[in-house]
Amino acid sequence: MKYRKLGNTHMKVSEISLGTWQVGGGWGGDFDQSAASKILHTAIDHGVNFLDTADVYDAGLSEAAVGKLLKERSEEIYVASKCGRQISPHTSEGYTVEALRGYVEDSLKNIGIEALDLIQLHCPPTEVYRRDEIFGLFDRLKDEGKIKHLGVSVEKVQEAQMAMAYPNVKTVQLIFNMFRQKPADHFFEEAKQKNIGIIARVPLASGLLSGKMNKGREFEENDHRKFNREGQAFDKGETFSGVDFDRGLEAVEALKEVFGEKEPLAAWALRWILMYDEVSTVIPGASKEEQVKANILAAGHPALSQEQMEAVKSIYDTYIKAEVHHLW
C-alpha cells in the first residue's frame, strides 16, 4: 500500500481506502455484523488506514462496526464520518447549528471515540455553502476537541468551490471516475493551489465499471440501483454516476477493448483515478472480503499509458459527456 497526504491535515492516508456504505454486506437487506467485521479487518490487514462512514449508513450500524474495529486493532486508523443527511425534509432550513452539533456528538458516542479525525457535511443543499454560521460551528467543535478536521461531501463541483472559500474546510469528497471526469477540468488544480485533500467516491460508478454487469442484471427492490435511477430518493448522480444504465454498458464494452480481459476492468478504473496526483485517496465500497483485496491490488497496477488515458477520455466524450458533464 502507498500513502498520500490528505491536503494540509495531519493525515497520510492509504491510496485505496474503504467506504462503508455497503459494509454490512451490500446495498439493501439486513445489516450483517459478521460480514462487516470481516470486510473491515481485511482492509486493515492490507494496509488501509482511512475509513469513511456516515451516521445514516445502515442507521448508525456502519459507524458502530467501525467503532468495534477500533477496539480490536492497535494500528493507527483514521475515521471520517458525515452528518446532515438525517435532516428531513433535506432542506437548508433544516441545517441548524444545534442539529449538526447533536449529530456529531451522536456519532462520537456511536463509534466510541472522543474525536473524529474528519467530519464532513453530507451533501447538503447548495444554499448551506453560503451560511457562515454552519461552518463556524465546526471551529468550535474543534476547539472542544470533538473533531480534528472539517470536510465536505458534495454533489457538484460548484459546491466544492463554494466550500473551499471557508478556511476550515480541509477536504472535499466528490464523485470521480471514468464516467465522471468533470472534476479534473479545473477543480483539481484549484484544490491543489489551496492544498485541499480530495477523496474520490463512487469510483466504480455503482458497479458499472466493474465490467461484470449486463442488460439483464436485476437489483433488489431496496437497492438504490433499482429505486434511485432517476433520483427518486437522493441525487441520481450517486447511482451509476448519473449515467443511463444501458448507455453505460456500451461504454464499458468500449473500455474493455482498450484494457483487454487479462485484468478486471475495476482494477483499471481504480488505477485510472490514482493517475491524478491531486487525489488523496479513493474509497471504493465492498460487500465481500474478496472485493477489498481486489480493490487494494489495483493500486499496484502499472501506470496507464498516455494512449490509454487518451482512449478513456475519448470514450467518455463519445458515450457519457453530453449526458452528465453539465449536471454535476
Rank of each mutant, 00 (worst) to 15 (best):
E76K: 13
S314P: 00
R247Y: 06
Y78G: 14
T281M: 10
E159D: 14
S210I: 02
Q193N: 14
T281E: 01
Q120I: 04
I296R: 01
S81G: 02
S287I: 05
S62I: 09
K215M: 08
I273D: 05
H46I: 05
T239L: 11
R180L: 10
R271Q: 08
D317V: 00
D246W: 05
M178R: 15
V56E: 07
R217L: 11
R225M: 07
Y57I: 08
R217A: 15
Q22L: 03
K2R: 10
K215P: 11
Q291F: 02
D55K: 10
Q161P: 15
N110E: 09
K142D: 09
E257R: 05
E133Y: 04
A294W: 06
A160L: 00
E133R: 10
R85S: 15
I296V: 04
L116V: 11
A251F: 03
N8I: 07
N168C: 06
V172G: 09
H301T: 04
V13I: 06
T281V: 06
G300E: 07
D132V: 06
G248H: 08
I16C: 11
A267D: 11
I196S: 12
A43E: 01
E190L: 14
A303H: 08
K293H: 03
I119D: 07
E250T: 04
H41E: 05
A35E: 01
K2H: 11
S287P: 07
I87S: 11
V279F: 05
L255I: 03
G28T: 00
E15P: 03
E155H: 04
